[in-house]
C-alpha cells in the first residue's frame, strides 16, 4: 500500500510531544549536562568531558554492582516466568474461582513498593518476624542482616512474591483468549498434554510472554525500593544494585557528575538489553 503523507498528524501528537519533553527529555538532558561537567557547589560548573564516564567504566564498584544486577534479573526471570506460566495454566477458566483467583493474584501488585519492603523486612526479622523467628526456632541459621546469601534469598523471594502475579495475569489473559476449538482439535488429533502446551498454549501466549519478560527484566534491573528498605544494600555491598549505588553516589555523596554519567550508562544498558530481548523474541515471527 502507498504511504500517505499527512503533516496534520504532527499537530495531533504535539501535546504528547510537549508532555514527553517536559517529563522525560528535559530531565534526561539535564543529566547529560551534569555528566560532562564538574561542580564544587555554588552553581559553578567546569567542563569535564568524558572523565566521569572513564572513571565509572574503570571502577570495580560499578562492575560489581552491574554483575549483581545481571545475576538478580537472571534469577528473577528464570523463577518468575515458568512459575507464572505454571500458575496461569492451573488457574480456573470459569466459575466462582476465576474472580477469587484474579483478586488474590492482583493483591501483591496493589501494594506500594516500600510497603512490600517493610512487610518483608519485618517478616524476616529473627527477633520479631514470623518467618525469621520460625526459622530460628526450627534451628535454621537465617539472618538477612548478617549473611549475604540470606539477604539475596530474602530479596529474591520478596520479588517473586511481589511480581509473579504480573506474569500470571498476563499469561492468563493469553490463555483465556485461545478458542475452545483449538483444544477440541488437539483432542481429535490425539495430542498429549505436553503437545497441547507446546504447540497451542505456548505459541498463543508468546506475545504476552514477550511483554512479561520485558517488563520483568526492566523492573528487576531497575530494582531499588525493596532492597533499599530490607537490606539497605548490605550486608557489606552484597545487595548493592546499580540503582542503590547510584543513589548513594548522587544523594549520599552528592557527586553529581559521576552519578549523572552512571545514570546514562545504566539507562543505555537497560535500553540495549531490552532491545536485544525484543529482537530475539520477535525474530521467530519474521521467518516463514
Amino acid at each position: 500500500m502507498e504511504k500517505t503523507w499527512n503533516n496534520k498528524a504532527w499537530f495531533l501528537v504535539l501535546p504528547v510531544l510537549l508532555l514527553v519533553a517536559f517529563s522525560a527529555v528535559i530531565p534526561l538532558m539535564t543529566v547529560v549536562n551534569y555528566s560532562v561537567q564538574d561542580t564544587f557547589g555554588n552553581n559553578e560548573f567546569f567542563w569535564a568531558g568524558t572523565d566521569w564516564f572513564d572513571d565509572i567504566l574503570h571502577s570495580a564498584r560499578f562492575w560489581e554492582a552491574l554483575q549483581r544486577n545481571l545475576l538478580f534479573s537472571f534469577i528473577i526471570l528464570i523463577l518468575e516466568i515458568p512459575l507464572g506460566i505454571f500458575i496461569a495454566l492451573n488457574m480456573p477458566k470459569k466459575g466462582i474461582g476465576v474472580p477469587v483467583c484474579l483478586v488474590l493474584m492482583a493483591l501483591p501488585l496493589l501494594i506500594p513498593w516500600n510497603v512490600v519492603g517493610t512487610i518483608w523486612q519485618v517478616f524476616g526479622r529473627v527477633d520479631i518476624g514470623l518467618l525469621g523467628y520460625t526459622l530460628a526456632a526450627l534451628g535454621v541459621d537465617y539472618n538477612y542482616v548478617r549473611d549475604p546469601v540470606d539477604a539475596w534469598i530474602t530479596v529474591i523471594i520478596m520479588d517473586v512474591w511481589h511480581w509473579t502475579s504480573l506474569v500470571v495475569l498476563l499469561c492468563y489473559a493469553g490463555l483465556v483468549s485461545i478458542p475452545d476449538a483449538y483444544y477440541q482439535a488437539a483432542k481429535i488429533d490425539g495430542a498429549s498434554r505436553w503437545s497441547v502446551f507446546r504447540y497451542i498454549q505456548l505459541p498463543k501466549m508468546k506475545r504476552v510472554l514477550l511483554i512479561a519478560v520485558l517488563l520483568r527484566f526492566m523492573d528487576s534491573f531497575m530494582i531499588y525500593t525493596e532492597p533499599f528498605v530490607v537490606t539497605g544494600g548490605g550486608p557489606g555491598n552484597s545487595t548493592t544494585f546499580l540503582s542503590i549505588d547510584l543513589v548513594k553516589t548522587a544523594v549520599g555523596q552528592f557527586d553529581l557528575g559521576p552519578a549523572a554519567a552512571m545514570s546514562i550508562i545504566y539507562f543505555l544498558i537497560i535500553l540495549l538489553l531490552s532491545w536485544i530481548f525484543y529482537t530475539v523474541m520477535t525474530s521467530s515471527d519474521a521467518d516463514a
Binding site: 476449538a181 477440541q184 482439535a185 490425539g190 495430542a191 503437545s195 504447540y199 497451542i200 505459541p203
Partner: peptide, 22 residues
Amino acid sequence: FQFPVIYDTMTVYDNLAFPLRN
C-alpha cells in the same frame, strides 16, 4: 471445525503429520 485450527509454530507438513505422529 468451523474456523481453521492450525498449529501456528509448525510447518504445513508438520501440521498434517501431527495426528499421525501422535
